[in-house]
């Protein structure tokens, strides 16, 4: 099992600096929640970890290997990395581009040149695990958001990666679908794999992570257990993750207290 090491990473795009001199270690087998308001650098960090973008300064290592554009030019390294690290995108329209659910889930293993008979069996097995075998021949774009999220997860879990990167896995889901996705993540591989989840849904981090990294303006504002972070209202308020507003309780009196952003 391999982990990530980021040292003094600065990364930006279109004259915006998304991450500033960020240093972070993600040892194998840990479950990390990256929380922060919109624009805090969560998605950029996930893309860095997945080798889709590369730092302007500093370095990112996976299992000691430096992640650079040149390394990804080598087939052996690229295939081995893609086999080990899977990213589930926030937008299902980006993740699901194949004509059927079966093709979608089979896409990754096919690119990694697995045996075709094994692929068909693994796809069916993964669809069963995610309780969506009935969607096998459906067109992904015509599924509900909850079903699309499951298919997106299946398309990555089919490769059984060591590290799973998730960008807002419960965004846009109804409460029931949210809890189903959380149960899936918690139960995946008996909790033995590395899971990095970017979210601003504070309600789920206690379930999906044993460590919570709060990002603010592209920097690490805190790196503590979820319970500690959830109790630190000042930190959450500074990171724009909670706010206060007045409301009433039907007895004519109003008051204010912090509310989670969702």
């Amino acid at each position: 099992m391999k982990g990530f090491d980021l040292t003094a990473v600065t990364c930006g795009y279109q004259q915006v600096t998304a991450l500033r001199s960020l240093t972070l270690g993600i040892p194998p087998g840990t479950r990390v929640a990256l929380v922060g308001a919109n624009g805090s650098g969560k998605s950029t960090l996930l893309r860095l970890l997945d080798g889709l973008v590369f730092p302007d300064a500093g370095e990112v290592r996976f299992g000691g290997d430096l992640l650079t554009e040149e390394r990804f030019g080598e087939d052996t390294f690229a295939y081995s990395f893609r086999r080990s690290v899977g990213l589930v995108f926030q937008d299902p329209d980006a993740q699901l581009f194949n004509p059927t659910v079966f093709d979608e889930v089979a896409f990754g293993p096919l690119q990694l040149a697995w045996d075709k008979r094994e692929i068909a069996a693994r796809v069916d097995e993964t669809l069963e695990r995610l309780l969506i075998p009935h969607l096998r021949d459906r067109v992904p774009q015509r599924l509900s958001t909850g079903e699309q999220k499951r298919v997106a997860l299946a398309s990555v879990l089919v490769m059984d990666p060591e590290v799973l990167l998730l960008d807002e896995p419960t965004a846009g889901l109804d409460p029931r679908s949210q809890s189903q996705v959380i149960d899936l993540l918690v139960g995946w591989a008996g909790g033995a794999k590395t899971i990095v989840t970017a979210t601003h849904d504070l309600a789920m981090i206690d379930d999906i992570a044993d460590r919570c990294v709060v990002l603010q303006g592209g920097e690490v504002a805190a790196d503590r257990p979820p319970a500690d972070v959830l109790c630190d209202l000042e930190l959450l308020r500074d990171a724009n993750l909670v706010h206060s507003h007045r409301h009433g309780h039907g007895h004519g009196h109003g008051h204010s207290h912090p509310h989670l952003h969702d």
């Binding site: 690229a78 990213l87 093709d103 896409f107 690119q111 040149a113 398309s155």
Partner: peptide, 22 residues
């Protein structure tokens, strides 16, 4: 933007410029 994200999603699952289908 979407086409960039789709390409990233393809790369993230091992796409290296050659299409393989089943």
């Amino acid at each position: 933007r979407l086409s960039g994200n789709v390409y990233d999603a393809m790369q993230a699952r091992g796409f290296r410029g050659e299409v393989h289908v089943l």
